[in-house]
């Protein structure tokens, strides 16, 4: 009897206290179509950092779309209606995914390449520039989706270095970066191929950028959303500090760009943009200058949004991409050469 009382007491104690913090929490949100619509549009309104730059009037958009939702609206229709909001942002960082574990599920994101010709052909690159059969001096860092880094000199001119980072979504150690720049040190110019690099870790991109200057460079500022109001922003002014390395690369550099130069690659580009010896060759970049926040709506749909944007030292908004210094279009019919690399070589000779 004594132990029974204790057990009952403990259970009561647990029952009372286990729900205490919940009394201090906000109630769980509803998951019906209108509630999810309101949740998403509120997130966009409060967190998205570039409504003005993207010329999106979220209140008008919400008013126009909300009326399309009623009790008969299917999940697919709701997703498509929310997708209208996502698409209006024209932003590769902003997406909506029904179920991340289901590759056949619904998803909405911005197609960076739509309306642009291909910027790179892997076969042309391998068969004429970096494949082992044509270039025995090429070195690689294995890992990632194939290679983390490819570097060496080009068979067309052994005094010109070549570096390709296919993605920033990898880990490259400080020692490996040193090794790359040590190997490239004696070249007279560098082709830095950034095509296909849609981003990853901006800190890694910044670390590479720091090898291309011997003095601090003012880059501009990243404007973050810091509160729900339309004017709740704060600017972080960025000055690139040079790497503390003896192998910094201060000679002319041609950075090859295409539409997939996005996100952390844009971080690299704005970091080195003020350096006069660095030029861009190829296509307009994809942009994606902002930092990303992500989460789940109440019904489990995944969202991501740009919650900052970068405005460079020239006052340019970078999110829609920038034109290269030297525009060059790849001719896919001529498989003997990559016009973008060839133009870069000419510029460096």
């Amino acid at each position: 009897m004594k132990y029974l009382k204790i057990k009952i007491g403990l259970l009561l104690f647990l029952a009372v206290f286990s729900s205490c913090e919940k009394a201090l929490m906000e109630p769980n949100p509803k998951t019906d179509a209108l509630a999810v619509f309101d949740e998403y549009t509120t997130l966009v309104q409060e967190k998205y950092a570039m409504l003005e730059f993207k010329n999106v009037n979220i209140n008008t958009l919400r008013s126009n779309l909300r009326g399309k939702i009623n009790n008969a609206t299917t999940q697919k229709e709701v997703f498509e209606i929310l997708g209208e909001v996502t698409k209006s942002l024209r932003d590769g960082h902003s997406s909506l995914i029904e179920d991340q574990n289901n590759p056949n599920g619904m998803s909405i994101s911005f197609d960076l390449e739509e309306g642009y010709p291909a910027g790179i052909d892997a076969a042309i690159l391998v068969n004429n520039y970096i494949g082992n059969t044509v270039n025995s001096e090429i070195k690689t860092l294995a890992g990632g989706q194939g290679f983390r880094a490819v570097w060496g000199t080009l068979p067309q001119d052994r005094k010109i270095g070549y570096l390709w980072i296919p993605s920033w979504n990898v880990e490259i150690s400080d020692d490996e970066i040193e090794r790359i720049f040590l190997d490239l040190k004696d070249t007279k110019g560098l082709v830095f191929d950034m095509r296909t690099n849609t981003g990853g870790d901006p800190a890694l991109a910044t670390k590479f950028a720091s090898y291309f200057t011997d003095k601090p460079i003012y880059n501009g500022f990243e404007r973050f959303k810091t509160g729900p109001g339309p004017n709740d922003f704060s600017d972080s002014h960025i000055t690139l500090q040079p790497a503390g390395s003896a192998n910094k690369y201060l000679k002319p550099v041609m950075v090859l760009t295409d539409r997939n130069v996005y996100s952390a690659s844009t971080t690299f580009l704005y970091s080195v943009d003020p350096v006069e010896s660095i030029k861009t060759v190829g296509q307009r970049t994809g942009g994606g200058s902002g930092s990303i926040a992500d989460g789940y709506l109440a019904n489990g749909w995944y969202w991501s949004l740009s919650t900052s944007e970068f405005i460079d030292a020239q006052g340019r908004h970078l999110d829609d991409g920038v034109e290269p210094d030297i525009p060059v279009v790849l001719n896919l019919e001529d498989t003997t050469k990559d016009e973008v690399i060839e133009r870069a070589i000419v510029e460096l000779q």
């Binding site: 409060e46 959303k225 690139l240 500090q241």
Partner: peptide, 18 residues
């Protein structure tokens, strides 16, 4: 509020990838 960095880092303009 809107990014994976402390609110005071963002409000004080201290954000920097370096």
């Amino acid at each position: 509020f809107a990014f994976s960095a402390s609110q005071n880092v963002l409000e004080n303009g201290d954000f920097d990838y370096q």
